[in-house]
Design a binder for these strands. Structure first.
Length: 789
DNA sequence: AATATAAAATGA
DNA sequence: CATTTTATATTA
């Protein structure tokens, strides 16, 4: 019987294409094959094979490619991802299968050298130094040998020509050395840590393994799928998303025991005996969460299975890798966007072969071809960096929960400041919850005190209030480190001419230009537009009347330098002069105590630990509280809790001072009292009272109008949704100003649907049926289905 | 994504 | 009307 294979191609195609399987070729699901597509050849993955006559008009599969096939859980993850994010299946596949890089194919053989045992014909001082180093007979890289001997490369080359050194092809170093789960640890776990670790380890035996997953479970893998009414929201409907593949247990309607009708949204929900989909590991800053989940990683390795630790890219620091090495004896294999070429391919191959047991990586590591995944840890689970906002829109934390269920392995979400989603999920019993309420080693959390800026005013033109100045003065006098936190890059967020009142604005974005004094430029933080800072006002021509309004970190540095002239001050922000490598070095230097006062943006709140830091001064806690973002309060609270938590993690106790104009604001009050729980309760209630779900499946609908004149003719550049289509709830704003972004007017609003429909095509159809706007306006819709509220 | 085809703009 | 640029459709 001839065979037909359904091949999914890693392109923006939503359906698999059928190809004839040539006689003599055996294919099974997941195999990677080469296929003709139009006039060219590409690769694809077998998504299904059927015994049937091809009908004669199908093109044949060209051949199989000798790489590890995609495992069933990974294929199901692709299906799930595509459906959940409304992305074409092929695009989802492209996350897990990248076309083989031609550069990576050609193996680069590194040449090593070692002593040939005979002396140099004409010995020189430099040559002797090299031979002395090489005398041990070890093989070294050429440059490594030259560096060790303190000579230049040409000396080594000369000795090779001379015959005193012999060359040897280096075996490529392994992508990762095996971590040792029983490596002697330097610091014993605290009682609380040991207890938490034991709970995590117990989870290895309670997760439901993959083959048993069935019934309502299948549909209910969803992670962010709870509305205010607590009903499932993301149950896709068959008619909106016709099934293409013969057997896909994740899709409703294909269950052996009755299909879609049995998929009650109530079934299985809220059952306390149900196995949790993930475990939230919540530990205050300094509680040693990492050490706790390292124990789960160790247990996973002991069981011979693979572990994946996801981190936001910025948190993948040398500091973290060293902590890993202190526990496991070696640094882990790492995966992030910067890893390319051969290294990337070899790591993939190592993971697929099961040789690499632990991978620490950024969100894209989620799609690595693990053969036997036994644990996923999502560190800093609240981080918004887990959201991919271009291409396929997905949230890596949530997809980690999905992959964990598909692989039948525990998923640990770790954070000091968990997201609202995870809190709600723990409240509802969907996620387990382990709490570490106290710091490791008996250290205390920093005392947080507010400075009411209405009472303690800074001097004119200054931004540090007297109590803040006094606290910094005392800390540095005692030889301690102080951090002044202000989440604003540059010198001043707004520049105006005091002669004519002209405000410098971005020509693309309707935002104010931020002065960067070091660079002598005005910069738009929205689109990156930069112009030289003018000598005279561009509007009225007056000299010396450009006035900076408000502070940025550069301006604070200026003030601090005047107040503390003999102290070492450093400014750390993402636009650090000298690039990321220099920035990394500076962060290390600060951690080593080579600095007295750090002035930083949110960059310093994440990833790095500063053991000498005892004082954190938040210069403006109110930033971000008034923005239109519905998550503003949550984000601000998390950021402030993270940054104040930097203090006092070393020997000496820490404290934090918070400058604010609204000490009674719920966010500030919660921060001061340390009552995070209550804050989140209130936040969740507030959202429900406002008719918003605590979170849900949302789409941001972006309407772009092509022409400025037309947009402005339409009622003062305001756009509105007069009549949303049924099934779509507009969360707001119903009417909003058009923002000019890269030459196009855009209008962004949040919509929500509780139906399993394809939001994008649904809205397109609705738009096509709506009355057309006058003039030459082109309206397009772009949907971002992963913008969780 | 790569390629084919259609449509629009350019130019003598 | 041929040539070049740009937008849109197709790939099994």
């Amino acid at each position: 019987m001839p065979q037909v294979a359904d091949i999914l191609i890693p392109l923006a195609l939503d359906t698999a294409y059928s190809y004839a399987v040539p006689t003599g070729l055996t294919l099974k699901d997941g195999d990677v094959v080469q296929i003709p597509l139009g006039p060219r050849e590409t690769i694809g993955v077998v998504w299904g094979v059927e015994d049937r006559a091809s009908g004669g008009n199908l093109r044949p599969v060209s051949g199989a490619i000798e790489v590890a096939p995609l495992s069933e859980p990974l294929r199901r993850l692709v299906d799930w991802l595509a459906r959940y994010t409304l992305a074409p299946k092929g695009s989802a596949l492209a996350m897990a299968l990248r076309l083989p890089d031609e550069n990576a194919r050609t193996e680069i053989v590194r040449i090593g050298v070692r002593s040939a045992g005979k002396p140099a014909s004409r010995p020189t001082k430099a040559r002797e130094k090299v031979l002395a180093v090489a005398a041990d007979g070890e093989v070294r890289g050429k440059s490594a040998l030259a560096k060790e001997a303190g000579v230049s490369l040409s000396v080594v080359d000369g000795l090779i020509d001379d015959g005193a050194l012999e060359t040897i092809a280096l075996v490529p170093e392994p992508v990762a050395l095996p971590p040792d789960p029983d490596f002697p640890r330097q610091m014993p776990l605290s009682e609380a840590q040991a207890e938490a670790a034991a709970k995590l380890i117990a989870a290895f035996d309670t997760v439901s393994p993959f083959p048993q997953m069935q019934g309502e479970d299948r549909d209910d893998l969803a992670v962010g799928a709870v509305s205010s009414k607590g009903e499932a929201e993301d149950r896709p409907q068959d008619e909106a998303h016709p099934r293409t593949f013969p057997h896909d247990p994740l899709l409703p309607g294909s269950a052996p025991n009755g299909g879609g009708a049995a998929l009650s949204s109530q079934a299985g929900r809220g059952d306390s005996h149900e196995v949790p989909r993930a475990i939230l590991l919540e530990g205050v800053t300094g509680s040693g969460k990492t050490e706790v989940y390292f124990e789960a990683v160790a247990e996973c390795v002991r069981r011979g299975r693979q572990a994946l630790v996801l981190m936001p890219e910025i948190a993948l620091t040398a500091q973290f890798l060293d902590r890993f090495a202190a526990r496991f004896g070696v640094r882990p294999a790492t995966w992030h966007s910067g890893i390319g070429g051969r290294r990337r391919e070899r790591l993939r191959a190592g993971v697929a072969a099961g040789e690499v047991s632990v991978v620490v990586g950024a969100r894209s590591a989620l799609f690595l071809p693990f053969t036997d995944l036994g644990l996923i840890v999502v560190d800093e689970e609240h981080e918004s960096a887990y959201k991919q906002e271009d291409g396929v829109h997905y949230h890596a934390r949530d997809m980690a929960v999905v992959r964990g269920r598909l692989e039948g392995c525990p998923v640990v979400l770790a954070s000091a400041t968990p997201s609202i989603e995870s809190r709600v999920n723990t409240q509802r019993g969907r996620y387990g919850h382990i709490v570490l309420p106290e710091r490791f080693g008996g250290r205390r959390l920093p005392d947080i005190t507010a400075i009411d800026m209405r009472l303690d005013k800074p001097e004119r033109g200054r931004f540090l209030s007297p109590p803040m100045v006094a606290a910094v003065k005392k800390a540095v006098a005692d030889g301690e480190q102080a951090l002044l936190f202000l989440n604003r890059r540059g010198y001043a967020p707004l520049t105006l001419c005091s002669a004519c009142g002209h405000r410098y604005q971005c020509r693309n974005c309707s935002t104010w230009l931020v002065e960067h004094r070091f660079r002598r430029a005005l910069v738009c933080h929205h689109c990156g537009y930069t112009e030289r800072k003018p000598e005279a006002c561009v509007e009225c021509g007056t000299f010396d009347h450009l006035t900076p309004c408000g502070p940025g970190v550069e301006r604070i540095a200026e003030e601090a330098a005047e107040l503390f002239p003999d102290k070492r001050i450093i400014v750390l922000s993402s636009d650090f002069p000298g690039g990321t490598e220099r920035l990394r070095q500076e962060l290390e230097a600060v951690a080593a105590g080579e600095c007295d006062i750090v002035i930083g943006t949110q960059l310093v709140a994440k990833g790095h630990n500063f053991p000498y830091l005892t004082l954190v001064g938040v210069l403006d806690a109110d930033i971000g509280l008034t923005s239109g973002d519905p998550r503003a309060a949550e984000r601000t609270f998390q950021l402030l809790q993270q940054v104040t938590g930097r203090a006092g993690r070393g020997e000496r106790p820490g404290r934090a001072l918070v400058q604010t104009y609204q000490p009674d604001h719920p966010v500030i009050a919660a921060l001061l009292s340390g009552e995070a729980e209550r804050f989140y309760e209130e936040e969740i209630h507030a959202r429900e009272a406002a008719g918003l779900p605590p979170f849900g499946r949302l789409a941001a609908l972006i309407v772009s109008a092509a022409q400025r004149e037309v947009a402005e003719a339409h009622g003062q550049a305001m756009a509105r949704v007069a009549d949303p289509p049924p099934g779509i709830m507009v969360l707001g704003p119903a009417e909003a100003p058009l923002a000019l972004v890269r030459g196009r007017y855009r209008f962004r609003l949040l919509v929500k649907t509780d139906r399993g429909i394809d939001i994008q095509s649904y809205l397109r159809d609705w738009l096509a049926r709506s009355p057309k706007p006058r003039g030459n306006t082109k309206v397009t819709i772009d949907v971002d289905p992963q913008s969780f509220l």
